[in-house]
């Protein structure tokens, strides 16, 4: 098997984990929380009606693919990117990069990855992983969600890379091109914080940022009317737990990883107030964790009456209030 000297490491999130591992492979000593924070990854968005989602949903991070773009802008690193119309050319290009011993990140639909347990598989076109070896029709994959490297058949990899639909991967690949000799980490951290504060507080769209949390807290009361039946509603309510905890967030919808970023940022910028804010965000995250557990419990017990959903909505609104206050304070530090 063509295999690269690539150190596999689990990460909280596939995109920040993939970027971190490629940068580490290239010799840059950087942590996943710093990658996440510098890219301004923390976010919130509620989508009540979208043609690509079968049920209302929410996100707790910025747009998929944006982390790489923002890391390039703020650190000055360069990634080389490729997209393909033809699957055969896309697979040949990947083989060529692996044969040249270049660890290469792929964007795929999670659903087609055979090594993922069935209960985790969903059609989502924005999973990232690093291909680090191949032999015949099998590829060696460093997937940040798994403790060890995994193998994947070429047919499954091709299906995942060339799935159609919303945010279709189009065979997208990227690898590290160069790391500058000098990086202004202070400036990068400050720009990342400013971007996160802007996204959470100032985007004038009612379903994004803090406004999005408040919309979520109101609209969740409409979920019973949209669900097919009680079991469907239970499934969707329990998905709140998945989106906040299991779907690669580092816990509490990325609030814990962002708190870790702020703690590291306080040392880089030598600002003690960031250390205090990181502790505050850890506590805010505990509140999100309570929401996750509450959603799992009422979903499992089918205890989904109006009273319980109102309670859930109130818990979400409370997070909006504390996060609005938090991000206002954070915006004054940089």
């Amino acid at each position: 098997m063509t295999e690269l000297d690539f150190k596999h490491k689990m990460a909280a999130h596939c995109e920040s984990g993939t970027i971190t591992s490629l940068l580490n492979f290239g010799g840059l000593d950087i942590t996943e929380p710093l990658v996440f924070g510098i890219s301004g990854g923390i976010f919130f968005g509620y989508f009540h009606k979208m043609k690509s989602f079968a049920f209302p949903t929410f996100i707790v991070r910025n747009k998929p693919g944006q982390m790489r773009v923002d890391i390039e802008k703020r650190l000055g690193v360069k990634f080389k990117t490729y997209a393909f119309k033809d699957p055969a050319s896309g697979m040949t290009a990947l083989d060529d990069l692996i044969d040249r011993k270049i660890p290469t990140a792929c964007q795929v639909d999670f659903f087609y990855l055979d090594y993922v347990p069935s209960w985790e598989r969903v059609h989502i076109n924005v999973h990232f992983m690093v291909v680090v070896g191949r032999q015949g029709t099998r590829y060696l994959i460093s997937d940040a969600y798994f403790p060890k490297m995994v193998e994947l058949e070429a047919t499954s990899l091709q299906k995942g890379r060339f799935a159609g639909g919303e945010m279709s991967p189009k065979g997208f690949l990227y690898h590290l091109d160069r790391i500058p000799t000098e990086i202004d980490m202070k400036k990068a951290v400050e720009r990342g914080i400013r971007k996160a504060c802007f996204n959470m507080l100032k985007i004038p769209i009612p379903f994004l940022g803090i406004r999005g949390m408040r919309m979520f807290s109101r609209k969740i009361l409409e979920w019973p009317a949209i669900a097919r039946d009680t079991e469907h509603l239970s499934h969707e309510i329990m998905k709140i737990n998945i989106l906040l905890e299991d779907q690669g967030t580092g816990g509490a919808g990325f609030r814990y990883i962002y708190a870790t970023f702020l703690q590291q940022a306080s040392e880089i910028l030598n600002k003690s107030e960031l250390r205090d804010l990181s502790a505050e965000l850890m506590l805010i995250g505990d509140g999100w964790r309570e929401i996750s557990l509450f959603a799992a419990r009422i979903g499992k017990n089918r205890d989904l009456g109006a009273e319980k959903l109102k309670q859930l909505g109130d818990m979400i609104r409370d997070r909006a209030d504390v996060e609005e206050n938090f991000f206002r304070k954070l915006s004054k530090t940089v």
């Binding site: 689990m10 209960w119 299991d246 814990y256 870790t260």
Partner: peptide
């Protein structure tokens, strides 16, 4: 069956990652 990374407060007060399991999979699969 489902491992993941969680960021937590360590004993020395520093925040960092631990490898743990999915609460939902462990309890509600």
């Amino acid at each position: 069956d489902q491992q993941m990374i969680l960021y937590v407060e360590k004993d020395d007060g520093k925040y960092g990652p631990i490898q743990t399991g999915s609460y939902l999979t462990a309890n509600y699969l």
